[in-house]
Computed example of a mutant assay.
Amino acid sequence: MFPILGILALGAACYLAFKYGGFDEKAAAAAFVIATLVSRLVQQNYSHTETGVLAVDFVLLGGLLVLALKSDRFWPMYAAAFQFVGSLVHVASMAEQGAYAWAYAVGLVFWSYPVMFALMAGTWLEARHRRLSDY
């Protein structure tokens, strides 16, 4: 169920970004798609810290930080902050030695949604700004 919701949310965010967004929104959407595909290739079973997914998440965090620093919009800061918190789930998993696979996986998935919602909100605001500036 959750993978279907994640794919639907990613699809909606990317559709909106590519149809209505500017360069920042399209770049973030492309990064999200690439990160999702690579994460699917490198993930295992969450019985230990997923180093491949950790690397993907930190690369995405770096990209969002660069976007936030160069962009004239606010949403990349929120997306980077949510991605940072999601990346901290990996760090927390390194301290836990018990059977935590479910909590670890849910923590990673949970923080991916606010990142995508930040992109959707940013796309909506960008499209609205362009529409209002046409008048």
Rank of each mutant, 00 (worst) to 15 (best):
D72C: 00
H90T: 00
S71E: 08
I4Y: 10
Q43Y: 01
V91Y: 02
A95Q: 06
G52L: 00
S87L: 03
K26H: 07
Q83I: 00
M1R: 08
V42S: 03
H129D: 12
R40L: 14
Q43H: 13
S71N: 08
V89Q: 09
A80W: 04
L10T: 15
R130M: 10
G52S: 02
W124F: 14
A68L: 05
A9K: 04
H48D: 13
Y78M: 14
D134G: 11
G11T: 13
F110E: 02
K19E: 10
E25M: 08
A12C: 12
Y135H: 09
M77D: 00
G107V: 07
A29Y: 13
T36G: 13
H129N: 08
V89Y: 01
M94G: 04
S133M: 12
A12V: 15
R73N: 06
M77F: 14
L125D: 13
S112T: 11
F18P: 06
I4R: 09
L10V: 10
L88C: 13
K19H: 10
L41D: 04
D72E: 11
G107T: 07
T36A: 15
F58W: 13
K19S: 09
I7G: 07
F23W: 11
M94E: 05
Y104W: 10
V91C: 01
G98A: 14
H48E: 15
Q83S: 05
E96Y: 12
A95G: 13
A29I: 10
K19I: 04
F84K: 00
S112A: 12
L64W: 04
V38S: 01
L60S: 02
F74D: 05
C14Y: 03
G21E: 08
A31Y: 02
K70T: 14
V33S: 02
M116F: 06
Y46H: 15
Q43N: 11
F74C: 02
L41H: 06
A95V: 02
A103S: 14
